[in-house]
Every structure is written in C-alpha cells, then in structure tokens.
Design a protein around this nucleic acid. Sequence first.
DNA 1: GTTGGACATATCGGCTCGATACATCGAGTG
DNA 2: CACTCGATGTATCGAGCCGATATGTCCAAC
Lengths: 188, 188
Amino acid sequence: MLELAVLGLLKEHDLHGYELRKRLGDLLGTGAAVSFGSLYPALSKLEAAGAIRVVTPPGNAGGHSATMAGRVPGRKRKVYGITTAGSALFQQLLTERRSAPLDERSFSLRLAFASYLSPELRLGLLERRRTLLAERLAELAATTGKPRGNRYVQLLAERERDSLSRDLSWLDRLITDERAMGRLAVHN
Amino acid sequence: MLELAVLGLLKEHDLHGYELRKRLGDLLGTGAAVSFGSLYPALSKLEAAGAIRVVTPPGNAGGHSATMAGRVPGRKRKVYGITTAGSALFQQLLTERRSAPLDERSFSLRLAFASYLSPELRLGLLERRRTLLAERLAELAATTGKPRGNRYVQLLAERERDSLSRDLSWLDRLITDERAMGRLAVHN
DNA sequence: GTTGGACATATCGGCTCGATACATCGAGTG
DNA sequence: CACTCGATGTATCGAGCCGATATGTCCAAC
C-alpha cells in the first residue's frame, strides 16, 4: 500500500518525507493521509531495498546562497528519488492482480495511478471493485428484510445501502467511459 | 474499537467468537468485518481483564439430547457473556469523548450503540463527526481550484466531494431528528 | 465411507496508527 | 533585540488490526 504510493509519487517528482505525506493527503483525501509512523519506516525499507535513494543528502540542501562554509546550512530535508529498480517495483506492485486488496484505500490508490496501467488492466481494476461492491449490496439487501436491532443500526444500514449504490453507478460510468475510450483508440 | 464492539454485542446476547464476527459484520457492513486475528486475542484480553467470561465451557455445550456419557458432546464453541465489570467498561469506552477517533469505523460503531448514550452525548457524537467532515470538504474545495494531476485523480476528488456532502446532509438530518426528539421529551 | 464445505478456535508476521520526542526555521510580539 | 510560537522536518515505540495459515469438528451429499 504505502510503498506503492511512495513510488508512484516519486515517479513524478523527487520529494522528502513530509512533502510526500502532504501529496498523499490530497491525492486520496485528507482522511486517508498516512501517518509518519508508517511513512518513515517505509522509506527506510525502500531505500534499503534499492528502490529509492537520497538525492539531496543532509548537509547539501537548501536555497541558502551565501551562508558561509562550516555551518552546514540546510541540514534537514532528506529528498528521495526513485531508482530504475524502484520503477520496476512500482509496476509490479501496481500490476499484480492476485491478492490485490480492493478496500477503499487500495482501490483509490490504484485508480490514482491508473494512467500507468494498460487499458485492459485498468478496466479489470474497475470491474473487480464493482463486483465487490455489488456483492456487498446484495448481501445487505438480503438482511434488510429482517427487523434490525435499534433505530441507529437501521439508519446505518440505509446509509450504507445508498452509499453502495451510488458508488456502483459511479463505477459503471467509469467503466463505460473506459470502454468507449478503448473503442475510440481502436478506430484510430 | 474491537473491545467496544464485543462488549456491546455481548450486552444483548451471549455469543461465541465466530458468531460475534458475523453479527459485527452485518452491524457495520460486510466490508468492516473484523478479522479473527484481531478478534480472538481481544476476547482473551477481555476475559483476562474480567470484562467477559466463558458461559458455556468447552465440554458442556450443545443441543445433543441423547448422546451418551463419556463422549464430550459439543466440545467446540466457547460462548462468552459480559460481566458487571464489562458493562462498566463498555459505558466508559463508549462515553469517553476525548481522543475518541472519529474515522468511519469508530463512528459507525459508536452510532450503532448510540441508544446507550444520553441524548447530549449522542448529539455530541453526531456533531463532532459533522465538524470533521465539514473540515475535510472545505479543505477539498480549497485545493479543487488548482489543476489536479491526471484524469483519475480528478475523478477521485469529485467522488470524494460528492460523498462528503451526502454524508453531511445525512448527518444534518440525524442531528435535526435528535434535537426534535429532545424537545419532544422535554414537553412530556 | 469418504470427501468436501461450513463451523470454530487459535497463532504469527507485518503493516499502520497515534503518541511522543527532538531539532530547525520564520514570523510576529513585547 | 530576545522570546515565543507554530509550521516544518525526521525519527522511534507500543499497541492494534489484518491476512495467511494451521488445526480440528460436524454434517451432508455422493
């Protein structure tokens, strides 16, 4: 999850951890922002694996033009860049369909990077997510007949139902678009 | 999170782990079902803390009417029941407003048990969740002006915006209802 | 009678979160 | 000018949760 996100963002720009977090925040919505307690270990791990490397080592940074010698000017940020191995890892993580979790967060992340996928894989991603949500909705509809516990549980279930059907329509729209674009591409 | 859920469900019925998981599943939606890897350790912990206890010990269970003696009939389920201390813990976990996480799951869980809250605390719960979502929406609106990355990121952001405003309306409706019920109760 | 699937409990490694600590920097305030 | 405060920035730790996996029981269907 996090590794995919980091690699994907570094594919576009070199970034340091703090900034990475912010970008991730408005990529997936503030609610899904990742914590530093996950981010920094993940960065260390990716660096150890050779997927990313420190581009601006501490002691070499900053826009300080005329600060004098021994002071070690902008000693703070660790700016990371992606390596060739990192790009390969990114593609691998993004592509592998098996066991790919399709929860809200993973799905959103993958969709955000969907431009790096082939049209077929992109469509597959959308369809698998659609299947998952459809199953949930069916399951929910099955239990809806029975009397639910209290008022609040009932409200929760209704909201869930609405939310699911809205997401399904949204996905259907996306899928239709994808198919249309696919046909268009073929005709060119 | 999980502890609150377990205690809340056991307040209504004695249950064993597997069944607990199912109930939790259709209480919060199948997507939010808890894993056994969290559930069983949580049960052990709660039992050790004296909040729950095994009601039907293994070796004593089952509807087997005429199975003979030494066979140890329904030796499988471990049915748990809540203790007095457990009820107290439940109230405490449900009530403590400070540091209560308001993410989707926690909120839904608390709302599902909202009947155990005083009208004031119930209203507070809804309002704090509302505030959170409103902040997110504002933040999102702020970044919406700027050009987003690719097409998919943009779609994701739009979806998020719609979803947030829907949830806000939903919450507003609930809040209004709560206030109305409060006034009604006062008039009786 | 045996094979397959639902039921049921349990553990383990790995990921993520929230809290916490610490250090730097720029902007404002007295 | 010294001071403080809040944003920036990196890092670690404990606890909680998930997914995979192992193991065993019960029942029905073939």
